[in-house]
Design a binder for these strands. Structure first.
Lengths: 137, 137
DNA sequence: TAATTATTGTAAATTACTTTCAATAAGGGA
DNA sequence: TCCCTTATTGAAAGTAATTTACAATAATTA
């Protein structure tokens, strides 16, 4: 049983063909995919896969931190497999390829400063970078 | 003529009652508003204001950097008046109130590090914080 | 292997957003 | 100041995205 199947199982969820299809599609792709795109690729793996199920599966996977939702100017429903331990996303503006990178430590100073300046107690941060990947340069 | 009217005028756009209404609504509110909410508040200032116009106005204002779009888990169309020179948003998870803060400098080191590690050339960054504001604590 | 119940897919409903187009009104020039 | 040009508006229709309802199916557990 692979890691994500473990996670699912431990959460009391079932491992099904549609869920395998969605997971496999995401595992094969290096850029954020929207539900429609996941469906299009997923039906090749599980013929009866439906859009509703894609939505539901993504919602579940996100709750279990198996996938991460990525917001971009044109679309806010791009999904990406979560790299363990890493926290932020860097997306290529040419080809869309995304990589993740750790960034917790770099932000602690900034967060402390902003807490002091604003009086807010900061609970979560959300950092996303955009640029050009090595291949596209 | 106020600053935003100058900006509009210089861009060759007209200053109209609907646009004034939208601007005034945003100026009065400290948290991100979605088009529907802007409409609801805006009709009090300009009775015939329509949702279509709200969408179009926000699109224009965003192009002119008069407003900023804010993404949150539940909604991706929250609009906030842009504070000049400042770059990032901090939103209270209790009341929704948002403040902006400057953050360019704190990120340059992080960006340089990630460029080196990933080989990407970073063009833009997007940082958003979530927390609890002084009033809600 | 059977029973339980989580999960799925179809279809319909809802919500969000965009486009079209005729009517209106802003603002530059006479 | 008034007229004329044309940007802007709002109603309505259209499209796309997302959610809900529910009966049928299939994954697990005993």
């Amino acid at each position: 049983m692979s890691t994500w199947e473990e996670t699912l199982s431990q959460a009391g969820c079932r491992i099904t063909a549609p869920r395998r299809a969605v997971m496999q599609v995401l595992a094969q792709t290096e850029w954020p995919l929207v539900p429609q795109e996941i469906l299009a690729l997923g039906v090749k793996l599980h013929a009866t896969l439906s859009l509703v199920t894609v939505y539901r599966t993504l919602e579940l996977f996100e709750e279990l931190s198996l996938v991460r939702r990525v917001h971009q100017d044109d679309k806010c429903q791009g999904y990406l497999l979560t790299a363990a331990g890493h926290r932020h996303v860097l997306i290529c503006e040419k080809c869309g390829r995304a990589v993740e990178f750790p960034g917790q430590d770099d932000l602690t100073a900034l967060i402390a400063r902003v807490e002091k300046e604003t009086g807010y107690l900061i609970a979560a941060h959300w950092l996303q970078l955009r640029g050009v990947c090595p291949t596209c340069r």
